[in-house]
Design a binder for these strands. Structure first.
Lengths: 234, 234
DNA sequence: GGTTTTTTTGTTGTATACAGTGTAGACACT
DNA sequence: AGTGTCTACACTGTATACAACAAAAAAACC
């Protein structure tokens, strides 16, 4: 570590971003399962930084509701409740559908090309069985779509909602049945390309409803924490 | 302060919340003007805590976009651009109007009573010329309204939007012409009490449009570049 | 006199040390 | 055996010290 002191703080900034991404992706891809504890010491050692930096990242993730920060117990990956899942999808239904109208008006040919590429990558991931990657790519697709409408604030909301949706999918989704059907996104691109905003809006609505319907809202069968859930239900 | 060392960390938690509120309110009420620098040292001394706690609060405020955190320059109160203002009001138009329908279905008599009380307080503040307080109460009213719809996620979005709106109003609003007309909120309660969601929705739309229209979207006179322009007047 | 370089100061970024709290294991008692 | 209590450990919360960097001020140079 003797030469490590020459690292500038500017490098430290991007490193924080990298660590944030790493943790965030791990959660979204379900490599870190809901309920998993995230100890500051452990993370600090893994990434070779001090706890200070880790805390900052943990707090950011907590505000995005990807991790839960209980007062003196530390951080753990959030386990979204069924109610939260319902709220999130209701919010997506409202916001994303509405954005399709503006998106159809403003979309350019470059956008279409980029979207098609993303959809293809996603299909590829699905075909090769990489479910984690597919979930993340799907979220990225929806976000990109939302950004087309030109409202940065709403796009940010969609980003948050997509992250949480990924978590929800990882918890309540069936193994063999991923949220987004493989051809759905391509169809959506088609409607947007044709400038048919209303059609895209209706399709997005069905699309989101289909994802939500594919969830099995049964509480996880946690052999051990069964008791906890029963008595911690209020 | 000799026995201050007996303060538990649990007390520290609520203290942080208090400090957060204090800073947040100060920004929302325009006692801290956009562009004002927020030095960690100064805040730490004012509130009697270390910089560590201040940093946490500052980062939270930054994620809520009330303060801007430039890499090595520190924190300052965010100066919302005209574009951001447009985006925020478009988002409010979409979300808050839509929520009125659900709110009308779920509202109870206790809710109505609480809302009337809030509206009255707001009118009082307006009458007594306390513009800062009125802005904050107005935001609280809109938030309370959003919470009625029963979607915690969307309510949280509305909270964020209202905070930012307060900031926008503080920057672009005219002095004598506050955003919310005094009787608007009472009218809205009436529609909700009657269970007329569609009417409430339409009224909310007009209400928000009126607020936005009352803004003067002239770009602020940036003191520093002003000089350059003045002396480059050859 | 104006411009560039150097120094100084002020402020944030990071790490580490310490204090306080939650948790679990051991031991004693019923 | 089962339960209550005590003690040791693990972890987080907070403060402080130090290092890095940016801006402003001063000095030197043209």
């Amino acid at each position: 570590m003797s030469e490590a002191k020459t690292r500038t703080t500017r490098e430290g900034d991007v490193r924080h971003e990298v660590i944030y991404r790493a943790v965030s992706d791990a959660i979204i891809e379900h490599r870190l399962k809901p309920g998993a504890r995230l100890r500051e010491d452990a993370l600090a050692e893994v990434f070779g930084v001090s706890r200070t930096g880790i805390r900052k990242i943990l707090q950011r993730l907590a505000l995005e509701q990807l991790v839960t920060l209980t007062p003196r117990r530390g951080a753990s990956v959030t386990r979204p409740s069924a109610e939260e899942a319902r709220d999130v999808f209701a919010a997506r239904q409202l916001i994303e559908c509405s954005l399709m109208v503006d998106a159809a008006k403003r979309i350019t040919s470059e956008d279409i090309e980029a979207l098609r590429k993303m959809a293809q990558e996603e299909r590829q991931a699905l075909k090769s069985g990489d479910q984690s990657l597919a979930i993340r790519l799907s979220a990225a697709f929806h976000l990109r779509l939302a950004q087309l409408a030109g409202n940065a604030t709403l796009a940010e909301f969609v980003e948050r909602l997509c992250s949480r949706s990924s978590l929800i999918l990882a918890v309540y989704g069936h193994r063999g049945h991923l949220g987004c059907e493989s051809h759905d996104h391509d169809d959506l691109i088609g409607y947007l390309e044709a400038g048919n905003g209303e059609r895209a809006k209706a399709f997005m609505s069905r699309h989101l409803k289909a994802i939500e319907a594919s969830l099995s809202m049964v509480e996880e069968d946690n052999a051990i924490p069964d008791l906890q859930q029963i008595f911690a239900s209020d």
